[in-house]
């Protein structure tokens, strides 16, 4: 007796679709997993200018964490995670909430806020380099208006330079966060606002207790994107401070790029990249896992 596909177990039911998609899966696996795997592999070899297969174990990793510049890079990444990600979320949320109040010229304002996103990081970096240059930018301008004692030279000092970078990043990243959160806000049932208003719940309380919890997925998406942005940040640093003063604004991506191309040190670069891969996974995997758990646990309505 034949088993019709309808009666078969569900996982065999879609095999034509699975078959049709298999090249995509194969390519995806090869490209993403394959290259990532090769990167990790190289980090255990003596590769310098060209990839070689001679194994050196954890040598690159040991050296890596003994390198001041790499450790500074990691610390800077941590600083940006707090300042840049939180800053973008707060500013983006405030902008989104402001636009969501049905203001006039919403489209124009939205375009203005989103515009920095369309600008290349290189341009952003250069512009902010000028703005923050004490002799050319904001400091010079304000002093020129008569406030002689005004100083704004964050890029010039090791302690503050990374925050200057955070500000430039904030300028660029807040718009995207705003759009993501605005989309989230727009997806919220309008009658929720009305229900809260009928109950006499103050606006700020509505935001905090009702709207923000609803935005959690949008916030998580934005935070993940922003975090990934930091992991990838290279051009902004190169254009704005080139890692300086000293190594005060170095970031892992720049360390990796410099080692990969300029310093001809594939081993160190891939070791750094592998560390980043692991740290990204450490952030993403729990998020995905929790989501999967929630989905699986939710009862059908």
């Amino acid at each position: 007796m034949k088993t019709s596909p309808r009666n078969g177990p569900p996982r065999f039911r879609h095999w034509p679709a699975a078959l049709a998609l298999s090249p995509v899966w194969a390519i995806a696996l090869l490209l993403f997993v394959g290259t990532a795997g090769y990167t990790v592999y190289l980090s255990f070899t003596a590769s310098r200018m060209m990839p070689v297969n001679e194994f050196v174990g954890f040598e690159h990793y040991i050296k890596l964490f003994g390198t001041r510049r790499w450790n500074t890079s990691l610390a800077n990444m941590g600083i940006l995670c707090v300042t840049y990600v939180l800053g973008c979320l707060v500013l983006g949320f405030l902008l989104a909430a402001a636009l969501d109040r049905k203001v006039r010229f919403e489209n124009t304002l939205r375009t203005i806020f989103l515009y920095p996103q369309a600008v290349s990081f290189v341009v952003t970096g250069l512009v902010w380099q000028w703005l923050m240059n004490p002799g050319l930018g904001i400091q010079a301008a304000v002093q020129g208006w008569g406030w002689e004692s005004f100083t704004f030279d964050w890029t010039q000092h090791r302690g503050t330079a990374i925050y200057a970078v955070a500000i430039a990043g904030l300028w660029q990243g807040a718009g995207l966060t705003m759009i993501l959160l605005l989309a989230g806000l727009r997806g919220i049932d309008h009658s929720l606002w009305q229900a809260a208003r009928v109950e006499g719940i103050p606006l700020w309380r509505t935001y905090v207790s009702v709207i923000l919890p609803e935005l959690t997925p949008a916030i998580a998406t934005a935070a993940t994107l922003l975090f990934m942005g930091i992991v990838r940040t290279y051009d902004l640093i190169v254009a704005m401070t080139n890692g300086g003063p000293g190594s005060a604004t170095e970031l892992p991506a720049k360390f990796i790029m410099d080692n990969l191309f300029d310093r001809m040190n594939i081993g160190a670069a891939t070791a750094g990249a592998s560390v980043m891969l692991i740290s990204v996974m450490a952030v993403i995997v729990p998020v995905l896992y929790i989501r999967a758990l929630r989905k699986g646990g939710r009862k059908p309505v």
């Binding site: 009658s191 929720l192 207790s209």
Partner: peptide, 10 residues
């Protein structure tokens, strides 16, 4: 309300 408008996270 038609859509109930219950506070979803409460």
């Amino acid at each position: 309300f038609q859509s109930y408008a219950l506070y979803p996270r409460m």
